[in-house]
Design a protein around this nucleic acid. Structure first.
Lengths: 345, 345
DNA sequence: CCGTCTTGCTAAATCGAGTTAGCACGCTAA
DNA sequence: TTAGCGTGCTAACTCGATTTAGCAAGACGG
């Protein structure tokens, strides 16, 4: 069943040296005085036999598996996890690491089991990822192992936390509107997303809105109105209709994510409003949806891939003393914002 | 750095037996005659110390790692991979297996590297997944290991292949329309999706259309027209406009995936056609999009989760002689199909 | 009283690497 | 001639489990 594998002993035999010597040569230890000739013979034998060290055996001795655990609460929903895994894997593979991937589905029992399984396999380090910014911290059994938290906003966790720069993202979104000349009639849909657990609003909502407010203030204006609601398409639809029914006439819309923008598009289409001619729209996340909508949506991207890369890099470099790493959220400009003549302040 | 770990020797010492005896007891070998009293002491010691076997050490001896490699060409795009991983992981974890996840990005060099890394870590088996049904087979270095191919339509591969039952899915879609009373004016958008590589059409396209044709024929009717194109939103948009401009008046639409349906929705909205009052729509994939559209889209689901589960189960059961496993595509009924009075054949 | 069988256990080998301690040889210097 | 030293290499141990081979003590039969 298991394919035949060349061992170090095979290499040593063919090179006419001991296993010890072969090991020294192949692990590049210069402190052990091996003649150039013997080195050459070992390297040749290894190349000819296509030798690759058995990582399991090596791990037993060295306690290093070159394997990182990636634990997330949810893999399935949205493309988030896919891109995070992709980024994490690329960075891991650059350094000959591999990823054990698992998800807890938010279930502590499942989490315990899967953390135990990872510990049994001696993972070197763990990325503990949450699919959106929220409280949460790795279980105690992971203490003693290098861990970074991705998207965790619980400050009690002592290790590095990797987060999207939501504040900067909010600024970027507002700047996109301001740069296009918008000053009046700028509305927000979604807002801070207050929930029973987060009465001040969800982390991303708070910071995005704060960034928007700052930039608008700098431009000598402010939000004309905000519709506070949850962040699914139906709420965007309801929110836009509600604004219009209340007599508001938005000229620009900040949708707190792309799904809300989809809902708002649907509502505007029903009411005969055209994007961007009547209403400019800027949004967040840059999901697939953004490029599918007509007109395509200008959106401030969640840097999933970069988050994954940064998480693994932070683990493997280890030198970073930073406890909080904010990853920039870049603007993806498309067709949903119209240039308008700037109005005098 | 590495957390303190209890070893088998610790357990044996505390139970007052040899490591050999402890090993026999804990691995439940009944052929070795251990007294009930000794068994009890070993179990107690293990429980009290919280002993868990070091899987690395065990693997070195047994050549079994209880770890499965999941290699896919693309993880990021669509939710496909996320759900596949989810299903695969659930089934793996049930049996105390874990998943090493990696993606090739379609790059043979990356693929070689990552396959080598997996082999170095002695994975027990591999799921070789493609994100949509297409040709492709695992590299030769994986021969000698149990491998299943997910979504691969290359028949030359000798092992089990797991595929969505596209033919059945096509039938299901058509039946949804027929059951609602539709007989005339049934159009398809997307069609077989012929490409230079697949002049007869993409695998999914061919089989879905075949299933549709069969059911319509059984109902004494047939497709009124099909717009052949690629499967992105813009093509759905163009396709629908093109049909209307050519004087067609569809009463029902089979969109070969949800993104095409999104495009078709956009076109219909521009032309003042209403779903489902003027046009019923059925689609494939059941992506997030399907539930976001207004009205929500009835769609034949790609069973991603089940595909992942089935792939791992097939690997671990090993007994299945089936070379081809077709996983059913269930209908997700929503609001895009209207009941119409059946016309006499 | 001796040989044989069963019961209940353990010493030692093994997996495939990495690592420590030290040996044999030749050269130099006293 | 012999101690001392550097060079170039290897024997043996280690990691933490599994597994093979076999030992000691008691029971039993003749």
């Amino acid at each position: 069943m298991a394919p035949f594998r060349v061992t170090l002993a095979d290499v040593a035999r063919r090179a006419g040296v001991s296993r010890t010597t072969a090991s020294f040569v192949l692990s590049g230890r210069t402190d052990m005085r091996i003649s150039p000739d013997a080195q050459r013979r070992v390297h040749e034998a290894a190349a000819e036999l296509g030798y690759r060290p058995n990582q399991t055996a090596r791990s037993l001795r060295t306690h290093v598996t070159r394997t990182i655990g990636l634990i997330s609460d949810t893999i399935a929903t949205t493309q988030f996890a896919g891109e995070v895994i992709h980024g994490a894997l690329d960075t891991a593979l650059e350094r000959d690491y591999l990823l054990l991937v698992a998800e807890t589905s938010g279930d502590p029992v499942a989490e315990k089991k899967l953390v135990d399984e990872m510990l049994d396999r001696q993972v070197d380090a763990v990325v503990y990822a949450m699919m959106y910014t929220k409280p949460g911290h790795p279980p105690g059994s992971l203490s003693g192992l290098p861990v970074v938290v991705l998207n965790g906003i619980e400050e009690s966790f002592g290790g590095p936390r990797i987060l999207p720069d939501e504040l900067g993202g909010g600024r970027t979104a507002a700047r996109a509107l301001v740069d296009a000349g918008h000053r009046d009639g700028i509305y927000a849909i979604g807002g801070r997303h207050r929930t029973p657990e987060a009465p001040d609003g969800v982390y991303a909502g708070r910071l995005r809105m704060q960034g928007v407010d700052e930039v608008l203030a700098d431009a000598g204006t402010s939000i004309a109105g905000a519709y506070e609601c949850a962040w699914e398409p139906e709420h965007g639809y309801d929110g836009m209709l509600s604004l219009l029914d209340d007599g508001h006439r938005p000229k620009a819309l900040v949708c707190l994510n792309d799904r809300l923008a989809l809902g708002a598009y649907q509502a505007m289409q029903e009411r005969g409003l055209r994007v961007p001619d009547d209403v400019s729209v800027v949004s967040f996340d840059d999901s697939d949806l953004a490029s599918w909508l007509r007109p395509a949506l200008t959106s401030v991207a969640l840097p999933h891939y970069e988050l994954g890369k940064t998480a693994v890099a932070t683990l493997l470099d280890g030198t970073s003393e930073r406890r909080l790493v904010a990853v920039p959220m870049p603007l993806r400009s498309r067709d949903s914002i119209r240039m308008v003549p700037a109005t005098a302040g």
